[in-house]
Amino acid sequence: MKQKIKEEIYRCIFAVLAFSSLVFLVGITLTLLTQGLPLFREVSFMNFLAGTDWYPTYDPPDFGALPLIASSAFVTLGAMFVCVPLGIGSALYMNEIAGYRQKSFLKPLVEILAGIPSVIYGFFGMVAVAPLIQRIFNLPTGLTALTGSLVLGIMATPTVASLAEDALSFVPNSFREASLAVGANRWQTLVKVVMPSAGSGISTAVILGISRAIGETMTVLMVTGGSAVIPRSFFQPVRPMTSTIASEMGEAVFGQLHYNSLFALGLVLFFTTLFFNIIAEYISSRYRLKLGMGR
């Protein structure tokens, strides 16, 4: 009897602790809402999202976040041009062309590289990439949207490669064997059989890559220069949402509009990444069902 009660107690403890991540997720949402929404008592929601002037410390202040949102989109889009082809290409190489030996060396290497802290990429961008960009394109400063996109793209490549490789490894070997057996060569098999059947898994990898790039802070904070204007070209400094939060929180006073506005930016950021993650989740669960796997 005593044993039974003990068992039940353990079960309850685990059950309660298991909900911690749900609690934190809800907690983050509530925190952002309670700290961010007070902004909209003073500034209308549309003026925040569509306003083109971000001067939070002026008197009267302007809280138009469009330049910041556009900067985030701009830099992320640029990064995609780098990390999507490189990441997927690398994944295909690792999974379809490299032999077992080569793969068991490459895959861990890519995973280790995916773990390099973002501040190091930011540092590298500042000391190596920015001067190079400045010299090549003859610009007044090397800290531009292009630099941010490049560094962010290089940084996201191992992540996309690793995720896409996982998706490819889920494609059953019988698919490949069937294709080769009817006379297709390896390239035709790869393009016509493997890629389509891993398609949704690969798109999940890309979507997760996008969501990571939007939320990335230190790299863009250090290399994009930080001027809050709507970007018109890749050769000008920009100021994405993440770097705005990181650089302005130090000077924002607790409880004032500027403080609230940074949480409102966090809210935009949070829901954007949540949206992408849920899409990725949806696609990947359908993908797994399609290939006849459980969750």
Partner: peptide, 19 residues
């Protein structure tokens, strides 16, 4: 729970800082 874990993993690090 699984979905909330996955989504928590996707929250940008600066948002954790705000929290």
């Amino acid at each position: 729970l699984r979905i909330s874990i996955n989504n928590l993993a996707g929250v940008p690090s600066v948002v954790f800082g705000l929290f």
